[in-house]
Design a binder for these strands. Structure first.
Length: 393
DNA sequence: AATCCACAGGAAGATTAGGATA
DNA sequence: TATCCTAATCTTCCTGTGGATT
């Protein structure tokens, strides 16, 4: 049930598998397949399909005695030019003493080593770059895409995977044209398709009849509402089962799914808040504190100015530089996009135009997470002093 | 209809951290 | 190891604006 598991059968991705395979089969005839870009939101099976087709191709290649290599790289983990090249090069080198070290070599030496090794091995190499958009600088892509010109015998083809449809807009036009020779878009799953996926996995993971009938449709439905993310659906089912197990329940019921949904959301928020930069944490804390005091006075609608004042006060208390209000505006937008606060622009007529800021998560528990930060520890329970209400003269 | 508040949010430049390169 | 580059962060300066009030 875990996201890392890649199943053997991918329901409702036959079309994608076939079209990807039809581009790549030319590798079996010794030709160079086009480079491909795969787009799709999270949990639409991009990685699974790419890995699956890659493995199949390698298997067929072994049967036909054609050399087909297949390398998977997650660019979120391996995000610099050096490390990408190093990774690819090392996948060709058996002997540990020959391997490219983590650091020390000039980048172009790694590049020529890689070329040498590939030519020695011959055949077609398919490189999957997952999360290409996380790669820093487009040199890597440029170098890899022009590699075919530098190689004597061997050939490479690149499969880039991205969940950002506008990814290529910021790319060097040369890279863009060579990388985007073929583009594929993976559509999100609908609720019915998600049910099939869940059923297939559930059959492997659970004993018969431990799931209430409605559990799978419910997980599928909830995940379908959130852009048809299969990973989300599986998480829901897994967490629901874990919760049921923990309370020694014989069956997994709707109730557990609902609890699971709440737990996943809480975990997500906790994680996001914990990893926020200090300044953003302060802005968030200011919002919480501001909302608390506003509630006392029964006056709603926290404005940018109010949050900024509380923020500035907090900074003074703990001796941190105060950022400008312009910057705080942006930090507020970021928190809004992360979904932990909501900020919408409203007009108060004569009294200006501002954003109305409200917390969209639980205040007290968020404070606890913020309190884990040493710097903030002493101010989490501080109460801002209400300013005088502005008099209308 | 005109005014004017309290910001929103764009443009451009300064600063800085960390990786690339010599 | 020194310095050059790049990307991210932050500031300064700015123009724009919805609608209650005048």
């Amino acid at each position: 049930m875990r996201p890392a598991y890649t199943p053997e059968i991918l329901p409702h991705r036959e079309r994608e598998i076939n079209s990807l395979a039809s581009v790549l089969v030319s590798a079996l005839r010794g030709q160079t397949p086009s480079n491909i870009l795969i787009y799709g939101k999270t949990g639409t099976g991009k990685t699974a399909v790419a890995k699956y087709v890659g493995k199949e191709l390698q298997r067929k290649g072994d049967e036909l005695k054609k050399r087909v290599h297949f390398i998977y790289i997650n660019c979120e983990v391996v995000d610099t030019q050096y490390r990408v090249l190093q990774n690819i090069a090392n996948s060709f080198i058996r002997d540990w003493s020959e391997r490219v070290p983590f650091t020390g070599w000039p980048t172009d030496e790694v590049y020529s080593k890689l070329k040498a090794e590939m030519d020695k091995e011959d055949g077609v190499t398919i490189i999957i770059l997952d999360e290409v958009d996380k790669l820093s600088g487009d040199d890597v892509l440029y170098n890899l895409s022009r590699m075919n010109g530098d190689l004597q015998k061997a050939r490479v083809s690149i499969i880039g995977i991205s969940n950002d449809l506008k990814f290529t807009e910021f790319l060097d036009p040369r890279v863009k044209s060579s990388l985007g020779e073929e583009a594929m878009v993976f559509p999100p799953y609908d609720a019915v398709q998600l049910q099939d996926i869940l059923r297939q996995r559930a059959a492997m993971a659970f004993k018969d009849a431990v799931l209430d009938e409605s559990v799978i449709p419910m997980c599928a439905g909830l995940a379908a509402q959130e852009h048809g993310d299969a990973r989300r659906a599986l998480d829901l089912l897994r967490v629901a089962a874990e919760l049921a197990e923990r309370e020694r329940s014989k069956k997994v019921a709707d109730r557990h799914v609902r609890l699971a949904q709440a737990k996943i959301e809480v975990d997500r928020v906790t994680e996001v808040v914990r990893t926020l930069p200090t300044q953003s944490k302060l802005v968030l804390l200011s919002t919480i504190l501001g909302e608390e005091t506003n509630k006392d006075v029964n006056q709603s609608g926290l404005t940018t100015g109010e949050v900024f004042e509380i923020y500035a006060e907090l900074c003074r208390k703990i001796g941190l530089d105060i950022l400008t209000q312009r910057r705080i505006t942006d930090l507020i937008s970021e928190l809004d996009m992360l979904g932990i606060i909501s900020a919408r622009v409203i007009s108060k007529g004569r009294y200006g135009r501002t954003r109305e800021i409200a917390l969209s998560v639980n205040g007290p528990s968020t404070k606890e997470v913020l309190a884990e930060d040493e710097l903030l520890h002493e101010v989490v329970h501080w109460k801002p002093v209400r300013r005088q209400q502005q008099k209308i003269v």
